[in-house]
Design a protein around this nucleic acid. Sequence first.
DNA 1: GTCTATAGCTGGATAGAC
DNA 2: GTCTATCCAGCTATAGAC
Lengths: 210, 210
Amino acid sequence: MAARRGNVGDPTARSALLDAAQELMVEEGYAAVTARRVATKAHVNSALVFYYFETMDGLFIALFQRGAENSFERLQAALTSKQPLWGFWEMIHDRSRSALTMEFIALANHRKSIRKEIAEYSRRFRRAQLETLSSVLAGYGLDPERWPAASIILVLSGISRFMLIEEAFDVDVGHAETITIVEEQIASLEGGRRRIGGGPTKSVGSPRRK
Amino acid sequence: MAARRGNVGDPTARSALLDAAQELMVEEGYAAVTARRVATKAHVNSALVFYYFETMDGLFIALFQRGAENSFERLQAALTSKQPLWGFWEMIHDRSRSALTMEFIALANHRKSIRKEIAEYSRRFRRAQLETLSSVLAGYGLDPERWPAASIILVLSGISRFMLIEEAFDVDVGHAETITIVEEQIASLEGGRRRIGGGPTKSVGSPRRK
DNA sequence: GTCTATAGCTGGATAGAC
DNA sequence: GTCTATCCAGCTATAGAC
């Protein structure tokens, strides 16, 4: 349970603060991310939050950027792999980042600086997806008039995101059937999933929480 | 702008408090919903919040239930109309409830009582959708083995929710094309949309915000 | 039902010692 | 860089007058 995050073991207080903030945000929501609580969790003094990030908004933005950078690299790896469609599908299914993403979206709802940050990142992310996948899909012989790459990205992302949200409430009606349908479609275009190392990607079948 | 909410004009302080809480939640996020701010907005004293709802959690739950009850009735009306599939699609597209829903999901992330409330409501909602739509779709000759009603509900909901979230960040890559594809499919099953009175349902084509 | 007043707490942020 | 100490604003919740 201790080797779960990316920067654990990093010696600097800055990283420790970001780790602590992320954990708090996932487990108790953004409102629980206060300077004092973050600092306590990171075993440093709360004044350091303002030393490193100036304001609480600064902390949130730094946290978001760290995660976004990380996600972007993983996206590029997925999209340039032998099976980009499978890679994409598994990437957007990442359960471990879902709660954090939802928190940031809610936070962005009323903090302008964070909204701006997420909007920029989303466009960059989407552009990378679209560029790569549209040529991949054309290569698979898919008619871009009938099935634009942008729509496929949007549909897959929507399905995935919606199931992740529902899972958090222990609702999973239709999830398994839908995953089967989607994965059959992917397989018909790209062949069956060939697993290649690829780290901690979990299988997609709704293990019950708690 | 004044006839926007359901209970405007209701004389009791309780309703005024709920109206104020909803407005604050949508516009500034759940963290802005404090007893004092709600009371000020409702032009009553903050002690009344605790008189009517006991705790802040109680206020949130009452607010959620009021909205859920309302949505459930509108869902039933949509599902028992002449064009249930169109009704369903337009209902889940409701822009005006999207921000509130997202906020409640984030709130549920760390408030157990609210999580329980949303989970129960979601299941009830989904059950109603599934019961009606599965017979409707069978009536349209759709093979329930290939296209289970539960999957269709999930896919439509996911697409819709995802687009609403993206819209909030001014991202709309692929939205128009995807809406076209979805609505062509619906039309092929249920015929073109025949509009019948039906209140303030907006058209579905991403009017730019601000 | 609605108010005033207030207890008791936690928050963001800063000054200044080390 | 890291800490102690502190200011002051805003919070939930309650007691009790009207």
